[in-house]
């Protein structure tokens, strides 16, 4: 497993064909997801598989379409960088020798707040998936911050690249939809992908999943349809300006839950005001903010994809 990761990483460094490098990086992401699965981090593996292997590969390929596929073969002397890397790596390994042994239950990380999350969260939050209860309830502030970071990143991409409205869309015959098999398979698949995304969103309390994964998967459904049938169709369903509004709506929903609990006389993001029973309130609160996160992530990812795929090579504009 780890050997595979190492080999993929080295191959990705050595190839000069950036298309191959991107594909290798996708494989690398998948391998990492499997490794996370092995280390009990099901939610993280899920996210890595959806994000690393799916969306980032598509974004990299869109970039390559504009900047060219091959790296120039001119290489600088690799000795000095290799020396720097070896020295830094040795220092890090030296530091790690002091770290607690792998998998030791007595390690300091497992002593502080984690036991409380594990033993108390079933009673306090009433949600079986501890990752969800930590993400959405105990550390709700963090997650709000992360969502805002994602929103800001989306904003930055739109500022840098701009978004094309209406005119000048890539006509559907330039898409790869000429193959009947692809058209049929994608048409059937899209419905299931979107349904699955909703399941992941609403079922995140009980199994692996939640707003982040769901938003990414929902966006993947639109991306795959776009790739096969061309931009015009997808943008008729969801015009770019609506994406910006959706992204804002998601954050407002999240922050709104916080403001609501403040108005009800409790601290920011205290869900106990949402129902008579505090545990039930937690349920509603977690669901609401997961929806907020999901909507924002979906809108931002899709907006970024629109911005990347809407660009033309200089030769194509004319």
């Amino acid at each position: 497993m780890m050997a595979f990761l190492v080999i993929t990483a080295i191959a990705a460094i050595r190839r000069t064909d950036l298309f191959a490098v991107t594909m290798l990086f996708g494989i690398y992401s998948f391998l990492t997801a499997v490794l996370f699965m092995d280390l009990d981090a099901v939610d993280v593996a899920f996210t890595e598989a959806a994000v690393g292997a799916g969306i980032s590969t598509v974004l990299m390929l869109s970039t390559l379409r504009l900047t060219g596929r091959f790296e120039s073969s001119r290489r600088r002397n690799p000795l000095l960088p290799l020396l720097v890397v070896t020295v830094t790596g040795s220092a890090l390994v030296y530091g790690m020798l002091d770290a607690p042994p792998f998998g030791d239950p007595q390690a300091p990380v497992h002593q502080h707040v984690a036991p409380r999350y594990i033993t108390e969260s079933p009673d306090e939050i009433g949600v079986p998936n501890m990752v969800t209860s930590v993400l959405a309830s105990y550390r709700g502030f963090d997650t709000l911050g992360e969502t805002i970071v994602i929103f800001t990143a989306g904003l930055a991409v739109l500022l840098l690249l701009g978004m094309r409205e209406g005119q000048n869309l890539r006509p559907s015959r330039l898409a790869i939809g000429d193959f009947l098999v692809l058209r049929v398979v994608v048409k059937v698949l899209v419905a299931f992908i979107l349904l699955y995304a909703l399941y992941v969103l609403l079922h995140g309390d009980y199994g692996a999943g939640g707003g982040f994964q769901s938003g990414v998967i929902f966006a993947t459904g639109f991306v795959i349809y776009d790739l096969v049938f061309g931009e015009a169709d997808v943008r008729r369903v969801l015009p770019p300006r609506w994406l910006a509004r959706l992204a804002v709506a998601g954050i407002l929903l999240y922050a709104g839950v916080g403001i609501f609990s403040m108005l009800a006389g409790r601290p920011f993001l205290d869900y106990s005001v949402l129902a008579h029973d505090p545990v039930h309130g937690q349920h509603i609160g977690i669901l609401l903010i997961e929806i907020g996160v999901g909507v924002t992530v979906f809108a931002v990812i899709l907006a970024i994809f629109y911005a990347f795929s809407g660009l033309r090579r200089p030769s194509q504009v004319a």
Partner: peptide, 24 residues
């Protein structure tokens, strides 16, 4: 321990968003 999972889960999604900024 669920705590590192939470931190990394959000970091992955933030990571793809910032990567997109880099590519832009």
């Amino acid at each position: 321990n669920p705590l590192p999972h939470v931190l990394m889960l959000t970091a992955i999604v933030v990571g793809v968003a910032t990567t997109a900024v880099g590519l832009a």
